[in-house]
Each structure stands twice: as C-alpha cells, then as structure tokens.
Design a protein around this nucleic acid. Structure first.
Length: 809
DNA sequence: GAGTTTGAAACT
DNA sequence: CAGTTTCAAACTC
C-alpha cells in the first residue's frame, strides 16, 4: 500500500498532514504498543493513554516462525545499505535491531529503503509444508513500503497465508506468486512524528496492531479498526490489519507531537510516549501476498485525500492495483483510517466472504473484482473521493448495515478464488471485507495482541469522513459467488500515491466536491485520478463498476469491467434531490467551467456532450483542467451559493452576477437561476437589476411563478384524482361487462330480456286495445308496463349478485 | 429544432 | 484589471 507522497503532502491541508507518520522501527524498543482491544472502537478516541505493549517478540515468535514481518525506516542508513536477511532474532542493522531484534523471520532490505520480511525465506527453497506450521506462510510476503524522509519507500514483506503445499516450495515460485503491497507514507517533513503501525494478523501469530498514544493526544485520538477477525485457531489464516488513528484535532498538538498516524500491520510500531500516534489498522486477512523482492513491481496504491477545511464528505477508494502481467496474489489489506474522526475504511481484496474464511490460495489466480470500501466524512455536506486507479479493478461500493462507513469494494483482476470457501477456523484467512462484513463497522477490536512497529513519520493525506454523513446507499445484493470471489486474494493497498504527483499537483483543499485521487491511466502509478464524489454514489448503483481508464485491468482475467454508471449521472439519492441536467458541451471537452458537470465536480454521464474528457478515461486531462481552473480561481469548485453578510439574505452568490440585459430576472443570471432564486447582493455588478427584495418585477415574477406552480400542482392533483376515479370505475365496471354477471342493471338487458320486455309491452297494448281504452290511456298503460319491466330488470340485477342465473323478465 | 440572446468563463 | 473572445445555457420563434 502506498500512502501519500511528500509532494502531495505539501498540498494537503495542515489538518490532514500534520500528524501522520510511519513508525520507525528504531522506536520500537521501550515504546509501548496499545493493544487493539483497548482501543475504543466506536469513538476512536481514547480517553486515556493506552497501555504500552512490548510484546512484539513474544507475539512474533509465538505465532509462527514462518511469518514475515518487516518494518524499516527509509531514512535509516543502515537499512538503506543493502538487502540483508535477518536470521533468527538478529537485526540487520542497529537501527532495526531494537525494533526487529525479536523477529525470528528473516527479512531482506532492498537497496532503496525497502525492507522485505520473510519469515519463511522467500528466496530460500526450503519451504516447510503447512503441516509443520499451522499456517503456511511460505512464499507469502507482505511488502509494506513507507516513504520516509528520504522519500524512499519501505517495503514490508509478509508471508502470504495460504500457499498451496505444492506451491511456493521453491523460491522461484514464491517470487512469482508473491504479492506485494506497499505502504507509502507521505510525510516528507521530518518534524512530524507520525507513527505507523502495521499489523498483520495471522491465525498463528494472532498479532494485533495497536497504537500508542500520548496522554495529551489520547483524547483526540480516534482509532478505527477495520477487518478484524479473531482467529481462534493457530492454523488460521493471517490477517493484516491497519489501524490508523488520528487525533481529532491535529492543530491542537504543537510541533512534532501533533497527530501522528499509525498504521498497524502485523506488527505495530510503538511510539515514544510523547508521540501521539495515528493508527491505521490494516487487516490483511488473506494476505496471501507472495513475495516480491522488487518493490517496483508493486502496483500503485492510492490514498484518498480530501481537504478537511472544506466540509465535505470524503470517500476514499482504494483499488487494488495489480499489474496484469504479474500474476501476483492479491493481498487483502483492509484499512481503517480515522483521522480526527473515524473516517476512512479502505478495503481491498478479501479472499473470503464475510463469514467465511478463505484458506490458502497459494496458487496464482486470476483476480476477480474486489470490492473495497469507501468511507464517509464527518458531518460534512460534501464528500470527496479519492480513487486509486493505477490498476484496473472493479469498484463496488457497499454499505454494511449498521456500519458507519461506506465501503467500496475494489476488484482486481489478478488472483481470486472462484469458489467460496466455508472456512474452517484453521484454514481461515481473513480479508478486510470479511472483517468488515463480520463486524459491519470499522470499529473492530482485535482480540489478538498488537505488535507495534515504528516507522518513519509520515504525513497522512487521507481525508476522513464520518460515515454518518455519507449517503446511505443500499448496496445491491451481491450474489454469494461474486462476493466470495471478490474477496479472495486481492492485492490491497492504501490509497496513497507512492510516487509524487506528476506535474499536476492540485490544491487538494480546493478540489471539486467529491474528489478521488487515483493513479491516472497512462501515468503508471504516478498519476492521480480525481473522481467526483458523485461517482462514488454512482458506483453504488452499479454492481460492478470498472474504471474505464484501466485498460490493463479490462484485459485481465475476463473480469467484469463494464462500468455501469447510473443513468443521468445521478445516484438514486441524488436523482431524488437534485436532478442534474445533462450538458451539451461541444468545444470545451467538458473540462472547463462552462460545463456544469465539470463545474460541479461530476463526471459526465448520459450527457449530450461531444468529445467529452470529463470521465475517468481522460483523468489526466481532467486533472490538468482542474488544476488550471484552480490556478485561475482557487475557489472555482466551491459552492457558488454561500451565506451572505449579516443583514443580507442568508444566501447569496459568492461572486455576484454581471447581468446587463436580463435584469437579473432570467435564468441567465446566476443569482436568479432556477434552483437558486436568490436575490442579487451588493457584490453583484449587474446593470438594471430587478432582482432585489422590493422589485415589483421580481414580485410579479415570483407571484406568477408561485401561481404557475400552484396551478401545476392543482392540475397534477386533478389529473391524479381523475385518473384514480377512472381507474376505480374501470375496475368496478369492467368485470361486470366482460363477465355478463355485472352488478349494474343495464348489463342485464340482453337480447332475450329486450324481446321479453317488448312482448310484455305488446301484450299490454293489446290489452288496452281490447278494452277499447283511449289512445292516451293505452300509451300510459304501455309506459307503466315498461316501467314495471325495468323494475323487474333492476330487481333481477340485484338478485343476480347472489344468483347470477336469475335474469328473467 | 434552429437560431438568437445572454452572461460566465476564458483569454489577451 | 479591463476588454475581448469563447462557450454553453437560456430563450425565442
């Protein structure tokens, strides 16, 4: 997994950036790790300093010898020096010795500040069968790359949990199958002391990541843990958890002691008592990542970032990136990030369905779409979404009932087990999804003891959004097959860019509402894709959404890659609230503010535009355009309707209008515009404005508009009522007519009845004639007879209700 | 539906 | 910052 690059950090708001850091291994000794159990799942805030945990060695050793844990700081010269394997408890370097000395698993340090831990030597051909170890971790490697001061990524290699016995026996196979996910921390600033703990849980090891909090920040710290699964059996699958805790108010902390994010993986880093940690819990239940000694091979990861300053919902979607060419096993890394508040839950490949545990998938498999999790923002009207696009996974947003978080399921095209597995405890590998589904919330308390691992400080650019604010979208029911499949080994990554943004470095605080940063297609892992927040909701509508930008993904594995954006570009909830008109842009490529879609931070969808670039396929261009707009006007994407000064209307246009001919009473005027209908203010430069409070024209228009609206409503109501009546009448009469057994009398006037009636009338006429009655009397007698006939018909009709056969004159 | 009007956005 | 051009929506016929 990758976390924000230093360059990106500079762009991030201080609120976001200040605190995060990756715990440096050196810091481990003497530092206390907080058991996950002790963290407050719900609030994510800790009222008191968490107990420190020093059991790293114990947990590691006790678990399985084959497990691999590696954390190293890029800044550490010793680490940089070379790849070194740690045999037994011997540290590779002094710096590492303290933190890793107890690690029994060998690990390698890559030249570029990457440390690869293989408990079971990845390269070594000696792979012990699973029998010896409850869990086979051979060949499984979790690579966590953190970017420290030097910008060098640190790679953690974790043994993947369930390799097939026959496989991964050889180093070569292991390497081929190895999956890596990088965790890149963005904090280039040295002053920051972020703490990143990476916690990977293996059933055997049952390690839980915890964060350590200083007393000062303990109150501010919120911890969100996702995907926790208690492992009952030692043989259970490995679970890696990242817990990111962020002090609610980073600014409250001065200097380095400000909020520091903690990423907890298999090993939790321990912070010095004074260091307020942010904890990122990443659960890699299935982390079946095979070993990759080369960090470069790792597909890019993304981190969602949203400006905290502007109230907005931030949705972070991490997409498991997996290079199509490399059949690597996906590593499921569920990540919860709570910055200031429980905000983000990112989940990537989870091999197992919720209740089910995916056991060893050592064999390389085609990755099926992985669903990952999007996270809502806290109490913010808008949300931004950062979408990692480097690889081409399908993305699904799912909402876990009862969960405060929104989850986006990302599907990668690499390895996935097509068959659901009923997990026996021993074989269970836990994926993030599994954990999430099981818990239904990001707040999960791991039962296992976390191990703290210190990493280099990192600035987290992850926006945190309270799930509550996120629109509640009911996830489409996924068939069991798809879920299970998707959850299988997928590579999970944090949404942070491992590499600096390309030329484009937009001010993240000013990104359009709903922004997703993701590696842009064609830019490798470097680029970011800025996705409109609506897109997230759009994703929610579609069961499977593939990112069109990722062509490689589409090509891989024949996974569902059809992007199915909602019609009209509206999410269900959006459509109900504010329908958006499709644009008709022809020349702007929908990359200028002329385009309402673009201006609103939305993708064009079902629009009538031509040569549209406002989509994922042209994320690079789109990002440039956004940057250009922001350069011209930093507030270009902020809402135009804001609150006016005191004494003025509650709402006013942020810039005011410049109307000259319309009198500000037509929809040309942005103040008057249909949906706003606000009056012009002092900041307007309009000429001949009639859009003010006392304007008779405006009143007239408003009255007319109101009257028209009333008429429309009345007409609508009348039509509805009439339709209802007609419908009701039809429902009552139609059966009688068609069946012949109707309830209305006239339905009984059949040919026979008519003939009988006529006979009665003729008979009465003859009677009158025989009695020599005058003609007037005769006619009266006939009419009276006719009346009697009608009465009999009516009576017969009445009887027919009970006796349909009683129709007779 | 084509053409015109309008004003914001973009450009100079 | 002002003037001009471009653009797409709003409007008219």
């Amino acid at each position: 997994m990758e976390v924000v690059s230093p360059e990106l950090n500079s762009l991030l708001p201080e609120e976001i950036m200040d605190t995060e850091a990756i715990v440096v291994v050196e810091d481990l000794p003497g530092e206390t790790a907080v058991p996950v159990e002790e963290l407050e799942p719900e609030e994510g805030q800790q009222e008191a300093p968490l107990p420190m945990e020093t059991e790293l060695s114990e947990t590691l050793s006790s678990t399985n010898s084959g497990s691999q844990l590696l954390l190293a700081t890029s800044s550490s010269p010793a680490v940089k020096s070379a790849t070194a394997k740690l045999a037994g408890a011997k540290p590779a370097s002094p710096a590492l010795s303290t933190g890793l000395q107890k690690l029994t698993a060998p690990f390698t340090l890559s030249p570029n500040h990457q440390i690869i831990l293989n408990k079971v030597a990845a390269s070594s051909a000696e792979v012990k069968p699973a029998t010896t170890q409850v869990i086979k971790q051979e060949g499984q490697k979790l690579v966590v790359t953190t970017i420290g001061k030097a910008g060098q990524p640190i790679v953690l290699a974790l043994p993947h949990t369930s390799p097939k016995p026959g496989q991964a026996q050889t180093g070569g196979e292991v390497k081929a199958q190895s999956q890596q996910f990088k965790v890149v921390t963005i904090g280039s600033r040295t002053d920051l002391k972020p703490v990143v703990g990476v916690q990977a849980m293996s059933s055997a090891s049952q390690l839980l990541g915890t964060s350590q909090h200083s007393p000062l920040q303990a109150q501010q710290l919120k911890t969100v843990q996702i995907a926790k699964k208690t492992q009952t059996s030692s043989t259970g699958p490995m679970i890696t958890k990242f817990i990111i805790t962020k002090p609610v108010n980073s600014k409250g902390v001065s200097g380095q002691t400000s909020v520091s994010p903690v990423i907890a993986g298999r090993v939790l880093s321990q912070n010095p008592p004074g260091t307020p940690p942010r904890t990122i819990a990443i659960s890699d239940s299935v982390v079946s990542a095979t070993l990759n000694t080369t960090p470069q091979s790792i597909s890019s990861s993304k981190i969602a970032i949203s400006p905290l300053k502007s109230p907005s919902k931030l949705t972070v979607v991490s997409m498991a990136s997996q290079s199509p060419s490399s059949p690597q096993k996906p590593v499921g890394v569920p990540i919860n990030v709570a910055l200031g508040q429980p905000i983000l839950a990112v989940q990537q490949s989870a091999p197992s369905s919720p209740a089910k545990v995916v056991s060893n998938h050592s064999a390389p498999q085609t990755v099926k779409p992985v669903q990952t999790v999007a996270v809502g923002g806290v109490g913010t009207p808008q949300f931004k979404t950062i979408f990692p696009l480097a690889t081409s996974p399908n993305v699904q947003q799912i909402q876990v009932p009862g969960s405060r978080f929104h989850y986006v399921r990302l599907v990668t095209a690499s390895t996935a087990s097509s068959s659901p597995q009923t997990g026996s405890p021993s074989t269970n590998s836990h994926t993030l999804q599994t954990a999430i589904e099981m818990t239904g919330t990001c707040n999960m308390i791991p039962t296992a003891k976390p191990v703290m691992v210190n990493t280099t400080p990192v600035r987290m650019s992850v926006p945190i959004v309270p799930a509550q604010t996120v629109k509640q979208v009911v996830p489409k029911p996924l068939n069991a097959t798809s879920q299970i499949v998707t959850t299988s080994q997928a590579q999970q990554r944090l949404i942070m860019p491992a590499t600096p943004l390309p030329q484009i470095q937009p001010n993240l605080t000013s990104l359009p509402p709903g922004t997703v940063l993701a590696p842009a297609p064609g830019t490798g892992n470097v680029g970011y894709a800025v996705l409109p927040a609506q897109y997230v909701t759009q994703l929610q509508q579609s069961t499977f959404v593939s990112l069109a930008s990722n062509t490689s993904f589409a090509a891989s594995a024949g996974i569902q890659t059809q992007a199915r954006l909602p019609l009209n570009g509206l999410s269900p909830s959006d459509s109900a609230s504010r329908p958006r008109k499709p644009c008709n842009c022809t020349k702007s490529q929908c990359l200028k503010l002329y385009c309402d879609c673009f201006a609103n931070g939305e993708f064009c969808n079902n629009c009538n535009c031509t040569n549209c670039f406002n989509n994922l396929e042209h994320e690079t261009e789109r990002l440039k355009a956004i940057k250009a707009c922001l350069d011209r006007n930093p507030e270009a994407f902020k809402p135009k309707i804001g609150k006016g000064k005191e004494g003025e209307s509650d709402r006013r246009h942020s810039k005011g209008c410049n109307c000259k001919r319309s009198g500000c009473l037509k929809n040309y005027c942005e103040c008057y515009e249909i949906q706003a209908k606000i009056m012009c203010s002092s900041i307007c430069k309009c000429i001949g404005c009639k859009n003010f409070e006392e304007s008779p024209e405006r009143k007239t228009l408003m009255h007319l508009a109101d009257a028209a609206e009333v008429r429309v409503q009345q007409q609508t109501a009348a039509k509805t009522k009439l339709s209802s009546q007609i419908s009701d009448l039809l429902t009552r009469t139609t059966p009688a007519i068609t069946s012949g057994g109707g309830k209305l009398p006239y339905t009984f006037v059949t040919k026979d009845v008519a003939e009988a009636t006529c006979e009665c009338l003729i008979e009465e006429a003859e009677r009158a004639e025989l009695s020599h009655r005058p003609q007037a009397v005769a006619e009266r007698m006939i009419l009276e007879e006719f009346g009697r006939c009608l009465m009999r018909i009516i009576n017969s009709a009445g009887k027919a209700k009970t006796d349909p056969c009683s129709i007779n004159c």
